[in-house]
């Protein structure tokens, strides 16, 4: 089997496994998995920029929130149907990521981190500033009756899981396609050696901007999906904490590996969930596990698998 074939088989296999899990797992874990899938989309968007392009952003919560509010506000104030509102969430994320990308890409390295962080912080404060419409930190509920798409009530456990899986599968396949494409390979080239990529004639800034936008829109899709499937939009999702989370998920799962974000998101979710049922000091457990992981699995979980067993992992 060629690496491409293997990769296709792997991605199809993951999606099949996720379908199978729906029938096997108890209700609680199906609900969790729906959440994890949506958040994994966020992490995948982040991974494209951080893992494949080598740009560390600390402001992705801005894109997530752009999608979330792009959907939430239009449903709230213009009574858009979920599909159109989802589209406007994507457009909001597209516009915001294009502007932020255009400005922030004048910088690199740590300055890029800080500029994205500052833009996200300004975005968070803007949500609070327009509290009359956004209801600030408290946020607003998208009522159950409005969350019906093409006759399917997205609040039912099955419909929700299917919707989450659909969103995940589209983004997952897209990422798999992108990283194998010439565009994806040139992103890796930029990550590995920007000067060299430049000398080889790549328009580095243009490539990076494209990566920021794709990454931003995917994060926005996750934000819009979260608001739609779980019925809530609030400013908490625009805070710094939610910018650091995808970084953490990606680093845990394996940066620059397509299945890394899913593994990292699921791992972190269950780490918190299980340790909190053992002890109230679950953050302590989580902290110790993170430290141990950096010591013993430096490439992240999927990264270690790639290093030790499956060198062809895309």
């Amino acid at each position: 089997m060629t690496d491409t074939r293997r990769s296709q088989a792997l991605h199809a296999g993951v999606i099949l496994l996720l379908i199978a899990l729906f029938f096997v797992l108890p209700a609680y874990h199906v609900g969790n998995l729906a959440r994890i899938l949506v958040l994994a989309v966020y992490a995948m968007g982040y991974n494209l920029l951080f893992g494949y392009t080598g740009l560390l952003s600390l402001g992705h919560a801005l894109f997530f929130a752009a999608g979330m509010y792009g959907l939430g506000m239009t449903m709230q104030f213009f009574d858009l149907d979920p599909a159109t509102a989802f589209g406007s969430g994507l457009i909001a994320a597209l516009v915001v990521s294009a502007v932020v990308g255009f400005l922030a890409l004048r910088t690199s390295g740590v300055a890029f981190m800080i500029v994205t962080l500052m833009f996200a912080q300004a975005g968070y404060l803007t949500i609070l500033y327009f509290g009359e419409y956004t209801r600030g930190d408290e946020g607003f509920v998208i009522q159950q009756a409005e969350r019906v798409f093409a006759g399917f009530d997205l609040t039912g456990p099955t419909e929700r899981y299917v919707a989450a899986l659909l969103l995940f599968s589209v983004c997952f396949s897209l990422i798999a396609y992108i990283v194998q494409s010439p565009f994806g390979r040139s992103l890796v080239a930029i990550r590995e050696n920007e000067e060299r990529a430049k000398m080889l004639g790549y328009d580095v800034v243009r490539h990076k901007l494209k990566a920021v936008i794709i990454s931003g829109v995917m994060s926005g899709a996750a934000g819009a999906g979260y608001a739609l499937l779980f019925g809530y939009a609030g400013a908490t999702f625009a805070t710094v904490q939610y910018s650091i989370l995808p970084l953490l998920w990606v680093l845990l799962g394996g940066a620059g590996v397509t299945i890394g974000p899913l593994i990292g998101t699921a791992f972190m979710f269950y780490l918190i969930d299980y340790s909190s049922s053992i002890t109230t000091a679950y953050m302590l457990v989580a902290g110790v596990v993170l430290v141990l992981l950096t010591l013993f699995a430096p490439q992240g979980l999927a990264g270690e698998i790639r290093k030790r067993a499956l060198p062809w992992l895309p």
Binding site: Y28, G31, D137, G139, F140, V141, T155, G231, G234, T236
Partner: peptide, 25 residues
């Protein structure tokens, strides 16, 4: 779905109420 509780109860901060109420419903 996990603990099989009869009711849920207790929270204070209103953004947590807003975030949780849709699931409760």
């Amino acid at each position: 779905t996990q603990h099989g509780c009869d009711i849920a109860f207790g929270t204070l901060f209103s953004h947590v109420v807003f975030g949780s109420a849709p699931r409760a419903g």
